[in-house]
């Protein structure tokens, strides 16, 4: 199978109805944290990697991160092979359910619709060779707050009439073996956390509570941070001098309710932290609907790195 590369802007995927949030994302914007620019990138980077893998794309190829669904729909102007991974958003092709974690062909005249979350929160839609989008500071990641990235370079989500085009020709079609592929989190899932030095400032009781009872994912959750609710955690530090914030940092503001800082977090901040969720845990949390119960499970940095490296081997 060989088709010419689709660089013709008149042949694209057109947004017929906009949902609550669909953003162009890649792996993120790195090496710019010292400029005050946030990392961005796919929140569930594991599902994102699988989506690109299914089409034989380079791992950092720009794809769509679709949150909730909410009626988001597309029509294509030319035949295209797409890959869909991550959350089950009750996606339908001309009214027929689409299998998750697989690639499929979309033909002109057909309509692709994302309805509502049935499992997980964020779906990833990959395109042959990756989406065309302007590269800003080394990345195509879209961050609304910073007005960076996206089709119109304003960081805004997809809207009706937007036309997506892609870089590649016919992709290599791959299939995910049974038992592999992204797993959507179940309630009472474990989120590995690497402890930071500020844990010493929390009371013994608070530390016991932090790791020995479930936390509830709050509805105050977005790409910047996810609030967890449970017993209030207290320590001797109320604020610290602002310092760099790593991905997954679990900060404890004065109300004692943790906020996990995600991809679009501010680069520096001044609340004390328990530590940071591992990147794998961040991907899990990014798929948790409000109300999901999660456990913070301490892990050493070395063990977390071992698990991370093992995860990366699945795409080799």
């Amino acid at each position: 199978m060989s088709h010419a590369a689709n660089n013709d802007a008149s042949k694209g995927l057109v947004v017929k109805q906009a949902g609550p949030l669909a953003l162009i994302q890649d792996a993120g914007r790195f090496g710019v944290g010292h400029l005050g620019v946030t990392q961005g990138g796919a929140a569930d980077w594991i599902s994102f990697r699988w989506a690109n893998w299914l089409l034989g794309n380079a791992p950092n190829s720009a794809a769509l991160e679709i949150v909730m669904g909410g009626g988001l729909s597309f029509e294509t102007e030319s035949e295209v092979r797409l890959a869909l991974t991550g959350a089950d958003l009750d996606a339908q092709l001309d009214g027929k359910p689409l299998a998750p974690n697989a690639s499929f062909t979309l033909l002109p005249g057909q309509r692709l619709v994302f309805r509502q979350p049935r499992q997980g929160l964020r779906a990833y839609l990959a395109f042959p060779g990756g989406l065309n989008a302007p590269e800003v500071l080394g990345s195509r990641a879209c961050t609304a707050r910073e007005q960076l990235g996206g089709l119109h370079e304003d960081g805004k989500p997809l809207k009706v009439g937007d036309r997506l085009t892609w870089k590649g020709a016919a992709p290599t079609v791959r299939r995910i073996a049974a038992g592999q592929g992204p797993q959507m989190p179940a309630s009472n899932c474990h989120l590995p956390i690497v402890l930071g030095s500020q844990v010493a400032a929390f009371s013994g009781r608070s530390l016991f509570q932090a790791f020995n009872q479930p936390w509830t994912v709050d509805n105050r959750a977005d790409r910047m941070g996810v609030r967890l609710t449970g017993p209030a955690l207290h320590g001797t530090l109320t604020g610290i001098i602002s310092e760099g914030i790593p991905l997954g940092a679990v900060q404890i503001p004065p109300d004692g309710q943790p906020i996990v800082l995600m991809n679009d977090r501010q680069t520096i901040g001044g609340y004390p932290r328990l530590g940071a969720l591992t990147p794998i845990a961040c991907a899990t949390l990014a798929q948790c609907l409000p109300g999901t119960q999660v456990w913070l499970t301490p892990v050493s940095a070395s063990q977390a790195q071992e698990d991370y490296r093992k995860q990366l081997t699945v795409w080799r």
Partner: peptide, 25 residues
Amino acid sequence: KPGIETTQIEAIRIKIRIETAAMDA
């Protein structure tokens, strides 16, 4: 203990501490 080690090294006039912040930070 994993994750909370603190290292102190001598610089000329300041004390530098290195703390675990995340898996890879």
